[in-house]
Simulated assay, not measured.
Amino acid sequence: MTQPPGPLRPEQQQELVGQIGAVLTAQVPPGWRQLRVEYRAAGRHVEADLLVTTPDGTPRVVQPHPEAVRLLGVLRSGMYQPGRGTWLGAILVFEPGRPPVADFVGPDLEPPFRQQPPPIGFQDELRFFPRADEHVPAWLRERAGMAAPVSDGQVRTPRIYDGVDASGKPLVRRRPLVPAEAERVLAYLDAAPVILASRSNGPDAFAPDRADAVPMNFRTDGAWAWPGAVAYYLREHGVPPDPDLVAHIRARRFTAPSEVPEPAKDLALAAITGEEL
C-alpha cells in the first residue's frame, strides 16, 4: 500500500463496521453476550485483540478472524483525512440486538500498543497517510525519528488537564507514565529556570480541600513554558503532563538547561502573560 484509498462515506463506514461484526460473530459459538475487538496500527504494524463474553458471563480472549482484521484496516484507510491523518486505534463493541459501538482514538493520540512499533512503523504511517506538518504531534514525530520542525520563535505552553466534566472536575485522557519515567520528567520540570514566581499558592483542582497547595510559579527551557501545577499534579496525583511536552522532554533526553538566554525568557514570559513583544 503506497497511498490511502478514497474516503468512505459515513453510511459506508457503518456498513463496514457491520461486516466486521458479522465476521466476528461467525467465528464464535452461539450464545455470546458481547464481542469487543481492539485494533491498533502504525504503518504495517498491526495489533488486534478480541474479547468474547460467553453465555455465563466469562470473558475469553480469542484471536480475531483475519478477514475482520483486514476489514478494520480498510475502515482505517477509508477514514483518512488528507493532511490530517487517520486514527491509529479503535474499539468496536457488538452485543446481540443492539447497534454496534465504535470508538476511534483521535489521530493526534497514541493508542496503548501491546508492543511498541519500531520507528519504521511510524515512518510508514506518515507515508501511507500523509499529514501536514502542523498535524504531526510531537510523540509521533519522536516515534518516527523525525527532527523537530524549525522553531518559529514561539514558546509553547502545556494543557494542565484535558477539560472538565459537568460538575467542574478536571478530566484527564492521557497515558500514565511509568514510575521511573515520571521521576525523570519531574526532575526535568523542577530543574528548568524559574521565570515568574509568586509567594502564594493556588487551589488544587483535584483536591478542593487543598486551597493553598499548588505553586504559582513558571519555568521554561526556552521552547516550552509551564506552571508549577504541571509538576505538582504529576507528583501529587500522577497526572501526566501534556503529551507533547512529555515527548519534548524525552527528545531532550530528560536533561533540562540550567540557563536560558534572556531573549528566550522574554518570549516565554510573553507566552504566559499573553503580552506581545
Rank of each mutant, 00 (worst) to 15 (best):
E15R: 15
Q154E: 12
V150Q: 14
P112A: 11
V69Y: 04
V155I: 15
S151K: 12
Y233H: 12
M146W: 09
D152Y: 01
P100R: 07
T86P: 06
D49M: 11
W224P: 07
G89Q: 12
D244C: 10
R76S: 02
P137I: 14
A256F: 06
A42T: 08
V61F: 05
V93W: 01
L35M: 05
A197I: 11
Q12S: 03
G121A: 15
E183R: 05
H135A: 04
H248M: 13
V93K: 07
A166N: 09
R84E: 10
H45Q: 05
G163Q: 08
E183V: 03
V37A: 05
I249R: 04
S77V: 08
R210V: 01
L109I: 15
S200F: 13
E15G: 08
V28Q: 07
A148C: 04
V136E: 03
D56N: 14
P130Y: 10
L277V: 06
P149N: 10
A270R: 03
T86Y: 09
P137G: 02
I249F: 11
R33S: 01
L269E: 02
V214F: 05
W224E: 06
M1K: 03
R114G: 13
L88W: 01
V101G: 01
L126H: 05
I91Y: 00
D204E: 06
Q27V: 12
M216F: 00
R60A: 11
P64N: 08
P112K: 08
A229F: 07
T54E: 06
R173K: 10
P158I: 09
P179Y: 13
Y233F: 13
